[in-house]
């Protein structure tokens, strides 16, 4: 099935330019993972629902260097009706050297580097469905923005212990949400149990919360936390910590870097970023059991 066929009646008519008919004149300014975003062309209702959904990430004033995204109308009849029962939602994605195309339920989007990153979203969603649509778009935008900045967006549980963040990475079902709840019970802060951002700094990498769906997530922008460890997570009969080889860690992170890891034009950049992340982090593999005490294993204080 070629790009867009799952979602669009006429995928060959995919917008070639970042232009169209705006929904309205309202705008929203967000700060996501250290990057300012200006979302333009919204109705007042769309802006209000988004402001409520992303309240803690609303930066209020537009930043000069914000990544600009414009929202345009698209007729509902352009989209296929999809029976979502038992269906695993996954976006369609296509890429070129200077652009990325996305198709999903009731929306299409295009990212372009001209030379700075900007984007456009065409959707039939007015108010009620709009937050979900914009969130799907922003996930892709954040993933590409972070990769371009030398970082990565990673499917992971981000846990803060003593001011430093560790990312617990694993395939679906590895126990990221369960581990996050255990960590909350043991007094740790959870950035997100689903997606976390890593950005380079002069001293290494820092982890930041992103406002995307997950059972546990930060409701507001939190301070960036220095990255301590990358941990491959799995469930086991008892808590057990082992080493993780750098090559295995890079491969693991690559499998958990959504959208960009499918893009042949940005794969090399992503792998370079991931190798840098791995080079500066402690690497561990953690098996955890469904009982307290796992942070005494992860904790690293010694009495003197």
């Amino acid at each position: 099935m070629s790009f867009g066929e799952r979602f669009l009646i006429h995928p060959d008519l995919f917008p070639a330019r970042l232009s169209g008919e705006s929904w309205g004149d309202a705008r929203l300014n967000l700060e996501i993972a250290g990057t300012s975003h200006a979302i333009e062309g919204l109705t007042d209702g769309q802006a209000a629902s988004m402001a409520e959904r992303f309240a803690g990430f609303d930066s209020g004033v537009p930043a000069k260097d914000a990544v600009r995204s414009r929202v345009f109308r698209m007729a509902p009849e352009e989209f296929r009706a999809i029976d979502t029962r038992g269906w695993n939602y996954d976006l369609d994605q296509d890429a070129g050297e200077t652009w990325v195309r996305i198709a999903g339920m009731r929306f299409v989007a295009r990212l372009a580097w001209r030379p700075d990153l900007e984007g456009a979203l065409w959707t039939a969603a007015s108010d009620v469905d709009f937050p979900g649509v914009l969130e799907n778009y922003l996930r892709v935008l954040a993933a590409y923005g972070l990769a371009a900045a030398g970082g990565a967006l990673l499917h992971s549980a981000g846990i803060v212990d003593d001011g430093e963040a560790s990312l617990f990475v694993g395939v679906s079902g590895a126990g990221k949400s369960t581990f996050s709840r255990l960590s909350l019970d043991e007094g740790r802060q959870v950035l997100s149990d689903d997606l976390n951002a890593l950005r380079p700094t002069t001293a290494g990498f820092e982890a930041l919360a992103v406002p995307f769906a997950g059972d546990i997530r930060s409701e507001a922008r939190t301070g960036a936390r220095p990255l301590r460890a990358i941990v491959r997570l799995r469930q086991g009969p008892e808590h057990r910590l082992a080493e993780l080889r750098p090559a295995a860690a890079v491969a693991l992170l690559a499998s958990c870097a959504p959208y960009v890891n499918r893009d042949p034009f940005r794969a090399e950049r992503l792998m370079t970023n991931l190798a840098s992340i791995v080079a500066g982090a402690e690497l561990r593999e953690l098996a955890f059991a469904l009982r307290p005490g796992v942070w005494s294993l992860m904790g690293r204080e010694v009495r003197a």
Binding site: L241, R300, A304
Partner: peptide, 28 residues
């Protein structure tokens, strides 16, 4: 199991720990 796991890690690579307390000063 925790101790064994820590020892496993320390066998393969340095285990980074933070000291809390003054009993080993001034050496540490």
């Amino acid at each position: 199991a925790t101790l064994e796991a820590l020892r496993d890690v320390a066998r393969h690579e340095p285990l980074r720990l933070r000291l809390a307390g003054q009993c080993m000063e001034p050496a540490l």
